[in-house]
Design a protein around this nucleic acid. Structure first.
Lengths: 345, 345
DNA sequence: TTGTAAGCGTTATCAC
DNA sequence: GTGATAACGCTTACAA
């Protein structure tokens, strides 16, 4: 029994009023007497009536749903960001549909297609490492779906973006390392077509340029996110004739690789070799020596991305922005791995 | 321009055939000539037609959507599980709506309500720490929504469950520690009304009972998941007259707390104190000494949970199961923190 | 093979 | 205040 779902028609029959009236009562339409509203709502509860969002959304032409695409749900940075997005959506009674691109451009396109078909009102995305073109993002906008990018963004695509201050942070971190007396700093980067990594590198290069140091070009190496690669490169450099006395990397995993390599070569960290990571993974503070890193406040990034939708896009009017880059300030965590002197500040 | 979304009626007009025919062509209905199908599909692409899942689902009475509720998206165990669920759903062209309970029973109920209104076909849930009753889960079933529990399950609720072999694993881990020569093993547990923690404790107690050891009752302490609490308790025990020579905990964070406490007291791990964690967090293998732990294969748990829906529930027939507990075997990772002797095996 | 029409559950519009 | 009625975009009997 109880097979079929209760609809407003069932309520209408039960209460002897029309379905449209029921609908209005449940939606707190002002034209309806407060007592009637209460009565209807009570009856709805009694009969275990559940509003059918699908039907309502079809009728209304909106889905009250936001789609999210990230490379991997189970990477700390992204799961934190999603948690932030979810919090804000929950406050606004919006649902979240989540897809993973697995760093594949093809899957990212498929995910976008799915989300368009699902009628999402907004898409929040951090693109895959493979993504080089922004055409698929244009499709989203063409489908009248609001687009918000975070972290990994396509520079050629205008619109809302929520980003870390990557350039600035890398700049400051580099300065800190120089302050600590490191003079031959190597830089291990990521895929340089991704804005986040590009900017971290820029920050590093600018700080070096503004200093009196000169860094040999082969100390600056792109696209070695994989810890194994990082270890190999670190080993080569540390065994060469011109040895770096510090490593700045774009991820804690790279840094960990460097640290282990250094240990295996009998180098003392931070005295003989300084190491600075990025992302403040859980393990960063737990290894010995604790790894200096950058807290990206990824949950806050997610929150802001979602808030942009509700602030600027949902009830858009003439004066509203259509284009904005919002910067979430990272926090530099200087720990033992890059600390040779007392800090001046 | 291009304001309105293209519908099958637009396609129909454009091609001079009826909308229903278009629908069938797009859905590969066998009655339609292959050439026509191709023609229609091509035109659809040309006009940038996007199938509206909402409308189709409303008509079909299904949503091809699975709801997921977990305490926190951004906890490793759960984000891995969700990644597994997502993978399987993606293969089947199903979408995922994700909610967090934040360990609150009230929020869990609200999430369930949302998902029912969203018309999900199935709910996959790991209940909050607060959840003691299963009435809200019954509501789900009453709404003709398939229910699959994983990890944290309500024992009083029948149906499909995907679980770790918690009891068994804790049993084996305890035996391993005894093999290593530890004789006074303390147990730091979690909230005991949650099946996972209850069973880990049972496993520990059984192994002790089957051994020749006798453990004082105050060595066995429930409900201290918070690392700070774990540290406090460890400190008290390690400074008392009767000192444990090992700790088995139900989480790596507890274990880390114990490890740091031991270090601060000048105790040598693993020689003077053995430590065994649970969950194999990223940091477990990276700290010194590396922490022994249990890999729960959470992604696999997620995958299995989702697969159950597609195997047993989606095309249910008379002979199908309605009740099953599936066990995902954990993997015991014995590392230096609990390794005093060479292993026999 | 093709088209007509009804209906999924809601809400908006228009009457009364 | 209240109630018909049409529509949202799609699928599916049923007819032709």
């Amino acid at each position: 029994m109880g097979k079929r779902r209760i609809t407003i028609y069932d309520l209408a029959k039960e209460l002897g009023i029309s379905a449209s009236y029921i609908s209005r009562a449940l939606n707190d339409h002002p034209s309806i007497n407060l007592k009637v509203r209460a009565h209807v709502k009570q009856k709805a509860q009694e009969l275990n009536y559940k509003h059918n969002s699908q039907a309502a959304n079809l009728r209304r032409g909106t889905s009250k749903t936001i789609g999210v695409i990230v490379p991997h749900i189970n990477q700390n940075f992204f799961s934190e960001a999603i948690a932030g997005i979810e919090e804000v959506c929950f406050e606004h009674n919006y649902s979240l549909i989540i897809c993973q691109s697995h760093e594949s451009f093809v899957k990212e396109c498929k995910a976008i297609d799915t989300l368009i078909r699902q009628n999402v009102d907004c898409l929040i995305i951090s693109v895959s490492a493979e993504t080089q073109s922004a055409e698929h993002l244009q499709t989203v906008k063409n489908s009248q779906i609001d687009l918000i990018q975070f972290d990994r963004c396509m520079d050629q695509m205008t619109g809302f973006k929520v980003l870390n201050d990557n350039r600035d942070t890398a700049f400051k971190v580099t300065q800190l390392m120089i302050e600590q007396g490191y003079q031959k700093i190597a830089f291990l980067g990521g895929p340089s077509h991704l804005n986040t990594f590009k900017r971290r590198k820029e920050g590093f290069l600018t700080a070096i340029a503004e200093s009196t140091l000169s860094i040999p070009p082969h100390f600056i190496i792109d696209d070695i996110l994989a810890p194994a690669k990082a270890m190999e490169v670190a080993r080569q450099l540390l065994l060469s004739s011109e040895v770096p006395d510090a490593f700045l990397t774009v991820s804690d995993h790279q840094s960990l690789g460097v640290l282990q390599t250094a240990e295996s070569l009998g180098l003392k960290v931070p005295d003989q070799l300084g190491i600075f990571g990025f992302a403040n993974e859980t393990f960063a503070s737990m290894i010995r020596p604790p790894l200096s890193s950058v807290e990206q406040r990824s949950k806050e990034i997610g929150r802001r991305a979602a808030q942009i939708y509700f602030e600027h896009l949902l009830h858009r009017d003439e004066e509203d922005l259509t284009d904005k880059e919002e910067i979430i300030k990272s926090e530099i965590l200087i720990r033992a791995s890059a600390l040779r002197r007392l800090l001046s500040a």
